[in-house]
């Protein structure tokens, strides 16, 4: 294969992993904007999506189309419980306690999944045929298009929710100023709960659509979660387009790095970018620097 085709190949697969990172990153941002918490358990929702779908299909023999929504629902329920049982009792805690509790939650969810299922990696069947499609010399699996398509729909829905529904607008108000939002009658605690519900739903769906390509197991959440966070950081913790771009940049860089440099160091790319962004432009690639006020 010549270099041009190869690059196109890397680009296409990078875009679809990038889309996944973007969805996870948006989940991080939604919770962060509503609560100021970075939810270290975000990756576990992603893992739950894939593992639950698999469980529903193999053990309960449900068809794929029925297993997916049910899996999302169950993962969302876990997100809801997590907020109720771990986050709400700590509302006025220090950032360190919140970091610790979400880490504890993530380990707990991961550990329980390992006990309920197993330590093996599993593949989810692709949503449509496994026949690769040829595009300008690059071979692409149909699942990549499913990923891109579903991501576009989800981002559209997300955008619509935040700019056109009452709840979405209320959540935005909370992120600007929770006290003022509370004073005008918005139930801030419900909005916090809602933020966990939405990001659990988005995360789990991301985990489902990527599972046919990358396999799934009880511990996929760690890396996917961290990379999603990296996408959100590039996007300046925005729950919109900047984070999507962040995810795509990360996905493409990773895929190029793995293909052209070394696949072993592929995972390090995300973290090098993460550190560089945090050190040099903590407000994200596209944000304006905040004037420092105490």
């Amino acid at each position: 294969m010549e270099l041009g085709n190869q690059l196109l190949q890397y680009l296409l697969s990078g875009l679809s992993t990038g889309a996944i990172y973007a969805l996870i990153g948006i989940g991080f941002s939604i919770i962060y904007n509503a609560t100021g918490i970075i939810n270290f358990a975000q990756g576990e929702f992603v893992m739950l999506g894939g593992m639950l779908t698999l469980f529903l299909m193999e053990t309960l023999k449900l068809p794929l189309w029925a297993a997916i929504p049910l899996a999302v629902l169950l993962a969302t329920l876990v997100g809801l419980l997590f907020e109720r049982l771990a986050i709400r009792p700590l509302r006025k805690a220090s950032p360190i306690s919140l970091v610790i509790i979400t880490i504890g939650g993530s380990i707990l969810i991961r550990g329980l999944s390992m006990l309920i299922w197993d330590k093996d990696t599993h593949a989810l069947p692709p949503f449509s045929s496994e026949e690769p499609i040829m595009i300008a010399g690059a071979t692409v699996l149909p699942q990549h298009f499913w990923i891109l398509g579903i991501t576009v729909v989800l981002i559209g829905l997300n955008k619509w929710f935040f700019s056109h529904t009452i709840s979405g607008k209320a959540m935005r108000a909370c992120s600007y100023n929770p006290r003022a939002a509370g004073l005008v009658g918005i139930d801030v605690r419900r909005m916090v709960l809602l933020s966990f519900v939405i990001s659990a739903a988005m995360g789990s769906l991301a985990g489902i659509i990527v599972a046919p390509l990358t396999m799934t197991s009880y511990d996929v959440g760690v890396m996917l979660g961290l990379k999603g966070f990296c996408a959100a950081i590039i996007g300046g913790m925005s729950s919109g387009i900047p984070t999507v771009i962040g995810g795509l940049i990360l996905g493409v860089l990773e895929s190029l790095g793995a293909g052209l440099i070394s696949s072993g160091y592929k995972d390090a790319i995300a973290f090098v970018i993460l550190l560089l962004i945090l050190f040099i432009r903590p407000q994200g690639l596209f944000g304006k620097p905040e004037s420092e006020r105490v």
Binding site: F229, C230, D267, L278, F279
Partner: peptide, 20 residues
């Protein structure tokens, strides 16, 4: 550079460093 960050951001940055 790393301790300029606070709270959650510091946690993530040290985590990234550890993984690298």
């Amino acid at each position: 550079p790393i301790l300029k960050l606070k709270g959650h951001y510091l946690a993530m940055a040290t985590l990234g460093m550890g993984i690298i």
